[in-house]
Amino acid sequence: MRIVTVCGMGFGTSLMLKMQIEDLLKTSPELTKGVRIEVAAWDIGSVKGQQADIIVASTDMKAQLTGTGVDTVFLVNLVSSRELKEKLLPVLQTKLQG
């Protein structure tokens, strides 16, 4: 399972998101059901060629990230762990079951 976080540059907000997702998965290992999940941070220009199961990005990237065919989670507050949990977990659970 591969989650890709995206921002304009690939090392700012996407990196923030990557670290938070990693923290979340580390503190709640039961969420992943034993599946190895990797999280990678990419910039919007290079993300097209990336293989991803889930994309996580800021709501402001919506226009650039439509039509990727990949389930995408858009966040308003990029540092809110509650928002991240609320939006990411349902998608993650569906993916893990499917």
Partner: peptide, 13 residues
Amino acid sequence: AIEQLGPYVVVAP
């Protein structure tokens, strides 16, 4: 960068 890529740098309220 903000002009081109939008205001996503506003990371939190």
